[in-house]
Write a protein that binds this DNA or RNA. Structure first.
Lengths: 268, 268
DNA sequence: CTTCAGATG
DNA sequence: CATCAGAAG
């Protein structure tokens, strides 16, 4: 069995004080992809960085207190790489890849974007370069006979089933037509599988992010923007996918909830 | 009876969430001088600014989120003045004076200073101008037949009895020889009385401020830097002075504790 | 160690 | 409505 979880922790220092540590201890995952760590390894206590039994790789952003991704795994990776080869994003704390004997696992955090600002252009540059990378990653993995999982916060809801207020968000970053088309290309073009949606074709939801503003969480006015994408061979072994909203997530320690996929596959 | 309290709240917004409101409700004071309000009136709910039965005057700093003093009183002041006539400090949120029929009450917050920096020079400029003001204030009050109380955070410990580690602080701002001499001039020169020390000649303490760093509060490693200074006629009526450290202050809502003086004097 | 402002999400 | 950095105390 291989269990992969992904969660945007919105600041690991804050999350660790509110319930992240307890969640991880109870999670029984094999690989955990983190986004928005917003800290360097040295700023965190050891038991938060890598609790007993875990190996941890981190890719902080050059800009202190921003972004930052990590991969925790019960097995030690045979290699770790930071960034995907685009100099603009290599030190932006947005991509980290860990390789194991039969698996490549990556954590990704897309820029959140904002229409009409340079941040949307940055997001689009990231999207272009990242799609290319994901295509090459599949080729590399196939040549090595490995499966691939790329989990993280994509900051894009794919279809109308992936956010509560889709009508009101058609001109907002995160649900723009070009963003949704790009996400389709990750699936139909690059050949990855959205594990949650493949097991659960019907929406709406389950959502993985709710704004802290207003009563969005209580009203389940959320977005599904955190995904476990898997190579087809691995996705075929998927037996479960869930958003860990409740009851395991009733004490909220991030604005995102963990997303977990379970594969009936002996990864070690 | 006239009861005057002074307290540096270290951010009234934070203090109000931690116990200030309950303290004030139980305090049975007539006049309360606040320092480090660190907010404008509009940033605070009405029940914090002026609970039922209180009148409130505030003098925020031009620099948002810094300094700021206030005077609460059960009687409405007949006049309120902000600053003491020195342009450098008039909008610095460090002095506020309220006049009543038979009393002038002021709240003061001296710059904290730091040896070897411009902040120490600023503190010294404040000290010079403020001593002059206090001298004139006594003259003005005497001419009007009123008593005076000037309460606040002076950021100076007067004698060796006024801080735990006096030996180690002789070259630090707050216990410099020139600061201690200046404080003596407030008493012997301008003719004010340190009410707490007059009622309680023996030290050490009681301290009114403990650093948040380390275990200073638990070890009572504090400083007495918050004072109620009174004109001699009023000071002669003093019947009690206390630092409200415990038990009324066991849930700490500031790094300073309230200092209270009680006068057997019918101020209204 | 704590406050707040300001940037970011 | 949160997180974090940085300045101040």
């Amino acid at each position: 069995m291989l269990t992969v979880s992904t969660v945007n922790v919105n600041g690991l220092r804050a999350a660790a004080k509110k319930g992240y540590v307890e969640w991880l201890a109870a999670a029984e995952a094999d690989v955990v992809c983190l986004q928005e760590v917003r800290a360097e390894r040295e700023q965190l206590p050891d038991h938060v960085v890598a609790p007993d039994g875990w190996h941890a790789a981190f890719a902080p952003a050059a800009d202190k207190g921003r972004a930052g991704v990590g991969v925790l795994s019960r097995a030690e990776p045979t290699s770790v790489r930071v960034g995907f080869g685009d100099p603009e994003f290599d030190t932006s704390g947005r991509y980290l890849e860990c390789e194991y004997d039969s698996l490549i696992a990556a954590s990704v955090y897309l820029p959140s974007g904002e229409v009409g600002t340079p941040r949307q252009a940055e997001k689009e540059r990231f999207m272009g370069a990242f799609l290319l990378h994901l295509t090459r990653l599949r080729q590399r993995a196939e040549a090595a006979g490995k499966e691939v999982v790329v989990a993280g916060d994509y900051n894009i809801a794919h279809t109308e089933a992936d956010l509560k207020n889709w009508k009101g968000n058609q001109t907002n970053s995160g649900f723009l037509p070009e963003e949704r088309e790009w996400f389709s290309r990750l699936l139909d073009g690059a050949g990855y599988v959205d594990v949650q949606r493949s097991l659960q074709p019907e929406g709406p939801g389950p959502y993985s992010w709710w704004s802290y503003r207003g009563k969005a969480f209580d009203n389940d006015a959320g977005w599904r923007i955190d995904y476990v994408l898997a190579s087809p061979g691995l996705a075929a072994k998927a037996v479960e996918a869930r958003v860990e909203r409740a009851p395991s997530y009733d004490k909220r320690w991030s604005d995102h909830a963990p997303v977990t996929a379970v594969f009936d596959w002996p990864w070690l």
